[in-house]
Simulated scan of single mutants.
Amino acid sequence: MSIFETSRELAASPAEVFAAFEAPARLARWWGPAGFRNSFDVCEFRPGGAWQFTMHGPDGAKYWNESTFLEIERDRKVVIQHLSAPRFRLTVTLVPKGAATWLAWEQAFEDPAVAEAVRHIVVPANEQNLDRLAAELARDAA
């Protein structure tokens, strides 16, 4: 197993960050790297719930994604199992830090060879994903 980790302090409470995950319309706005948009077919935000969607790349390419929400702890944690290739488990942990939130993002790939092959995409994409989440939180606060 290979793990990619990133973290960030977000200028929002854990409840506000969690709300950006739990509302499908909001999640669709910020999920994925810069330039991508999403079309959700199914988004059952509950433990065991299905999440099926297409990511539309800036070049017009479409990427089908199928996942399951494994664990959800309100305002604390979201664990997602990505079922389509490349397979990984994403654990997002929210920790209060004053009026802000410390978000830890841990993406564990089942196959280390696959992880190494996509490292050049995943590392910057995860940072861009958190950039987009921060922008969504700022949009909601405005």
Rank of each mutant, 00 (worst) to 15 (best):
A99Y: 00
N65Q: 03
F18N: 01
E16T: 14
A135E: 15
P58T: 10
R37H: 10
M1E: 11
A104M: 09
F88V: 06
S67N: 13
T101N: 01
S2C: 03
W105A: 00
R76I: 07
A34P: 01
P14Y: 06
V95D: 05
R76Q: 12
P86C: 08
A117M: 06
G49P: 11
F21E: 01
E71W: 07
Q128A: 11
T91S: 15
P96E: 00
N126H: 02
L130H: 01
A34N: 04
N129V: 02
P96H: 03
A108S: 15
D41L: 10
E73L: 12
L70G: 13
P124N: 00
A15L: 10
A50M: 12
A117H: 11
Q52V: 13
S2V: 03
A11R: 05
F40Y: 12
V123R: 02
F18I: 07
A85V: 10
N126T: 02
V114Q: 09
N65W: 02
G60A: 10
A138N: 03
P47D: 05
Q81W: 05
V42D: 09
H56R: 10
A61Y: 06
T91F: 01
E127N: 03
G60S: 09
A115L: 05
F36L: 12
F69C: 15
P14M: 04
V92L: 06
A85R: 04
E16D: 09
M1D: 08
E44F: 10
A34V: 06
I121H: 12
T6I: 06
S13T: 14
T101G: 03
I3M: 13
E44A: 15
N38A: 06
R46W: 08
G49H: 10
A61F: 10
Q81A: 11
F45C: 12
L137S: 06
F36R: 04
L90R: 03
S2I: 02
S67K: 08
Q52A: 12
I72L: 15
I3R: 11
I3H: 07
H82I: 11
F45P: 05
A104Q: 08
W105N: 03
S7G: 13
E106D: 12
W102A: 08
F4W: 04
G60W: 09
K62D: 14
A141M: 05
D59L: 07
L90H: 05
M55W: 11
R132I: 06
E5C: 09
D75R: 10
D111G: 02
R132G: 02
Y63H: 14
P14S: 09
G48C: 09
A20C: 14
A113E: 11
W31R: 01
P58W: 07
R87I: 14
F69D: 02
F109T: 01
R89N: 02
W31E: 00
D111W: 04
V122I: 08
V79C: 05
A104Y: 14
F18Y: 14
A50S: 15
M1K: 09
Q52T: 12
L94S: 06
E73P: 01
A108C: 13
K62V: 07
E16C: 04
P112K: 13
F53K: 04
A125L: 04
A113W: 00
P124M: 00
V92I: 15
R29N: 15
E110V: 12
A141V: 00
P24T: 12
V79F: 04
V95K: 11
F45Y: 08
